[in-house]
Amino acid sequence: MTELLRDIRAYLRADFKLGLYLATALWVGLLITINYQFRVENGLIDWQPYSPWRPVWYFGMYTTAYYGAFWLWSMFHNRRDIWRNRWFWLHTLVALIAYSYYAGFIAYSDWAQARFPDFGLYVYVYKILANVHSLFTIVLPLGLYYLLIDKSANGFYGMQPKRKGLLVYATLLALMVPIILYASFQPDFLQSYPTYRDTSAHTLLNVPEWVTALGYELAYGWDFVPTELLFRGFLVIGLSRILQQNVPTSGISWSNLSKPGPVLPMIVWYATIHFGRPVGETVSSLFGGYILGVLALSTRSIWGGLFIHIGIAWLMEAAAFWQKM
């Protein structure tokens, strides 16, 4: 744990600039204000759920947020060279296109409706597919990119399990328990959670309801795997190799996080994927995403982030179930 904390301090010393962090806060604050004031996610985009333009709208929103934050980062760290780096553009555009397509992809709705005409079963299957289609829309594209273009001896963007930092991750998850319990008493929380809803699918399938609930929760938990893979693995661990190029060494190895990393721009984009959630969840994602990003750089693994992310998600589901019993 001491080593991990030392790495985090080294990263903060390298990356933190008061002007940069204030400018980034203003930028993300503007994005959040525009979204919730003008209902960009829950209005403009969601009002046309089957439009083929949905991935394009998401792409526009995500690229604006991400490259705007990266521009600030590059100015304050005097890294204008990254805008001339074709590998930077290729790497980030692969991520933006894949996630935008994932966010706007809805074709599984027609597939589920055609095969499960009963409404209750259709809704259940629809929600399962909404959580697992990321296997094809995110994991597959990133896997092909890794195998064909970006294969590294360090492995597939932090997917290797490592023991480093497990105590810190467990502590962070434990600290979230009282916060989640408090949140579970708030009306807006109970409007969003649990994400599982009784659709009578268990009756139609002639199984106990806990079976359909478990199936849904497993699919719901899976959906955080590609999220961590892309944001903490691909955009932090993977992109850090590109940011090292053309940077003079200072005698301190990168493994100790002694150079600025791509965490700050990542969390701005990460916040935008929460725009359909309560505003408090969007704001908290900035802090959670930052911590997980720094820890991913330190450990070179996303498994700790998966432990926290899935753990929090299932704790929120459990708290909401408990409130509605």
Rank of each mutant, 00 (worst) to 15 (best):
P141D: 10
Y66E: 10
I179L: 14
D198L: 04
P194N: 14
D223T: 12
N246D: 14
W111P: 02
I273G: 03
M61K: 12
G120I: 06
T195P: 00
Y270S: 01
L148A: 12
N42T: 14
A23E: 14
T195E: 15
I34C: 11
G143P: 01
Y62S: 05
V236W: 01
T63N: 11
T92L: 05
Q160S: 08
L181G: 08
S51R: 06
L257S: 08
P194Q: 07
A170T: 06
Y66F: 15
Y124A: 00
Y157D: 03
L205F: 04
I291H: 02
S255I: 05
K164T: 12
Q244N: 13
R84C: 06
T299M: 02
Y126N: 15
I106Q: 13
A14T: 05
G288Y: 13
W254I: 00
E41L: 08
W111I: 12
V123D: 10
Y36A: 03
Y101L: 15
I128F: 11
E3A: 10
A10M: 06
D81Q: 14
F38G: 04
A318R: 08
A95C: 05
I302Q: 06
D15Q: 06
Y21V: 09
Y124F: 15
A183Y: 07
F105G: 00
V283I: 15
S285C: 11
I32E: 04
L175Q: 05
F321I: 08
S255R: 15
P260R: 11
Q186V: 09
W57K: 08
A313D: 15
N246G: 10
D150K: 10
E281F: 15
D118M: 05
D110N: 13
A130T: 08
Y67R: 09
D46Q: 09
L5H: 12
R277M: 13
F38Y: 15
S240L: 12
Y290V: 03
E317F: 03
T299D: 02
T24N: 03
L4A: 04
S240P: 00
L173M: 06
R6H: 13
T212P: 03
A69F: 01
V263L: 03
Y122I: 00
L315S: 10
S152R: 08
F105V: 00
G104Q: 06
L166Q: 11
L22C: 13
P49G: 03
E228S: 10
Y21G: 00
G68N: 04
T227S: 08
S298E: 01
V236H: 03
I310L: 07
F59R: 05
T92F: 00
I312N: 14
I308D: 02
L167Y: 10
W254T: 03
Q48W: 07
V263W: 00
Y36T: 02
T203D: 07
L26Q: 11
G60Y: 09
I242E: 04
P141N: 13
K324D: 09
R232P: 04
L239V: 06
G158N: 05
I291Q: 02
Y157W: 11
Y196F: 08
R9T: 05
L90V: 06
H77D: 04
L142M: 14
R79C: 02
F189K: 09
T249Y: 14
I252M: 12
L264E: 05
V168H: 10
L257Q: 10
